[in-house]
């Protein structure tokens, strides 16, 4: 079963991302949005954890939330796919379930 995991909390404030990555099985997708987009930037304290997870799961980030925070796409970890709201909806449609790590 394909699952889309979404994380909208900052990894620096909550353990939502950490818990999500622990529970995301190989082949599933993880979308970062709202305050969660901070984790998509390379060079953060969580970058290694994300890179490790990306060996098994696909990472996505909502471009609108990056832009809002002035975080340019050139700052992202290599291999993370930027999607817009339409892409968010498509991801939700493509997967069997959506699990929100609130």
């Amino acid at each position: 079963m394909a699952i889309l995991h979404t994380v909208n909390k900052s990894p620096f404030e909550r353990d939502a991302l950490e818990s999500c990555l622990k529970h995301a099985l190989a082949g599933s997708s993880v979308l970062l949005f709202e305050d969660g987009v901070a984790a998509a930037v390379d060079g953060t304290a969580y970058a290694d954890q994300i890179k490790g997870a990306m060996e098994n799961v696909s990472l996505f980030v909502l471009g609108e939330d990056l832009k809002a925070r002035g975080l340019g796409e050139h700052k992202l970890i290599d291999g993370i796919t930027v999607v817009d709201y339409k892409g968010f909806v498509e991801l939700a449609g493509k997967n069997d379930t959506v699990q929100s790590w609130l």
């Binding site: 620096f12 471009g63 609108e64 832009k67 809002a68 002035g70």
Partner: peptide, 23 residues
């Protein structure tokens, strides 16, 4: 401090999320 440092980033553009840019 902490996530507060993001408040001061340059190039903020929240038009896509429907919020006013107060930066």
């Amino acid at each position: 401090v902490d996530d507060g440092v993001y408040q001061l980033t340059k190039g903020q553009d929240p038009s896509g999320i429907g919020m006013k840019n107060f930066s």
